[in-house]
């Protein structure tokens, strides 16, 4: 994780919202960036910024793929 900051403090007992930046480590040095905005256990936002052109890709949690052992994308 290259950077993390508190972006929102929540009143009434809820956990604060944090934005973390993760950088890809590739053979050619550093690659794209992942921006993860989380609040406690919840991920409010997940973006990937491609290095070559700065294009952003938004993601959302894929709960159906979740298993205890890891993501399983091929089961139905």
């Amino acid at each position: 994780m290259i950077k993390e900051r508190e972006v929102r403090r929540v009143k009434g007992g809820g956990p604060s919202e944090y934005e973390a930046q993760w950088e890809e480590i590739t053979s050619g040095g550093t690659g794209g960036k992942y921006i993860v905005v989380s609040q406690g256990a919840r991920i409010n936002e997940f973006r990937y910024i491609r290095k070559k052109d700065g294009k952003q890709f938004k993601f959302e949690e894929d709960l159906e793929a979740w298993t205890e052992k890891g993501c399983e994308w091929n089961r139905k």
Partner: peptide, 9 residues
């Protein structure tokens, strides 16, 4: 870990 899928594509 989290499982994620891209949206808007």
């Amino acid at each position: 870990f989290r499982c994620l899928k891209s949206i808007g594509v």
